[in-house]
C-alpha cells in the first residue's frame, strides 16, 4: 500500500472509532451531585454576596471573582459547588464537594472544551485537593503539583478552588 492510499484510509478509521462517542461534557451537574452526595436532597443555596464580601474574597484568594459563575447547594452532610474557570483559552467547569467541616471531599471535572491539556481530569491530580480547607496555601508548585503540558489548566482550577474556599469562609460557613 502506498503512503497516500494509507492516508485516505484514516478518515474511515476515524468514523469506525466514532461509535462510542461521548461529548466533552464528562459529567452533568446532576451526575456530579449523585456521585458526590448519593441520594441526599441538595437545596440550592442563594449566594448573594455584597460588594464588600466580593472584595474580601478577591483579597483573600488573590484572584478575581465574578459572582455568577459559582453555584452552591447544601446537603445534609456538606456543600456542593459548581464553578467555571478559563483553562488555556476555554472554560473548564468543575464541581467541588465540601464536608460540613469545610474540607474538600472531592473534585470532579464536568466539562473540558479544549483539544489539549485535559489532564486536570486525572484522578491523582484532583486527589491532591482532598482534605484541603480555607487557609491552606493551595498554590500550584507549593502544595499542589502541576501537570507538565497542562500548567495553565492546573493553575486556574487551583485558583478557582482557592477562591471557592474563600467564598465558603466569608459567605457560607456557619458561625
Amino acid at each position: 500500500m502506498t503512503p497516500s492510499s494509507r492516508l485516505l484510509l484514516l478518515p474511515f478509521a476515524a468514523v469506525a472509532v466514532c461509535a462510542p462517542a461521548h461529548a466533552m461534557v464528562y459529567l452533568s451537574v446532576e451526575e456530579a451531585q449523585k456521585l458526590m452526595f448519593g441520594d441526599q436532597a441538595l437545596t440550592p443555596l442563594p449566594l448573594s454576596l455584597s460588594p464588600q464580601q466580593v472584595a474580601a474574597v478577591e483579597k483573600d484568594a488573590g484572584v478575581k471573582f465574578f459572582p455568577g459563575s459559582l453555584r452552591a447547594w447544601k446537603g445534609a452532610d456538606g456543600y456542593f459547588f459548581v464553578d467555571a474557570v478559563i483553562g488555556k483559552h476555554d472554560l473548564i467547569t468543575y464541581a467541588v464537594a465540601l464536608g460540613q467541616d469545610g474540607k474538600v471531599r472531592q473534585v470532579e471535572i464536568l466539562e473540558y472544551r479544549e483539544a489539549y491539556g485535559g489532564d486536570v481530569r486525572n484522578p491523582r491530580w484532583r486527589k491532591q485537593f482532598t482534605g484541603k480547607q480555607h487557609g491552606d496555601p493551595l498554590h500550584l508548585g507549593e502544595d499542589i503539583q502541576g501537570i507538565s503540558g497542562a500548567t495553565l489548566s492546573c493553575e486556574h482550577v487551583t485558583d478557582g478552588i482557592r477562591r471557592l474556599l474563600s467564598v465558603y469562609d466569608i459567605a457560607i460557613r456557619p458561625r
Binding site: P3, R124, Q145
Partner: peptide, 27 residues
C-alpha cells in the same frame, strides 16, 4: 506529499508533578 511520515508519542502524566515520555518520527 508523495512521501509521508509517521509519528507516535507516548507520555506518562499519572503522578502529579511528573512527566515522562518519548516520541518517534520516521519517513
Amino acid at each position: 506529499a508523495q512521501h509521508l511520515s509517521q509519528y507516535v508519542s507516548l507520555n506518562y502524566k499519572g503522578v502529579p508533578g511528573l512527566l515522562a515520555g518519548a516520541a518517534l518520527f520516521t519517513g
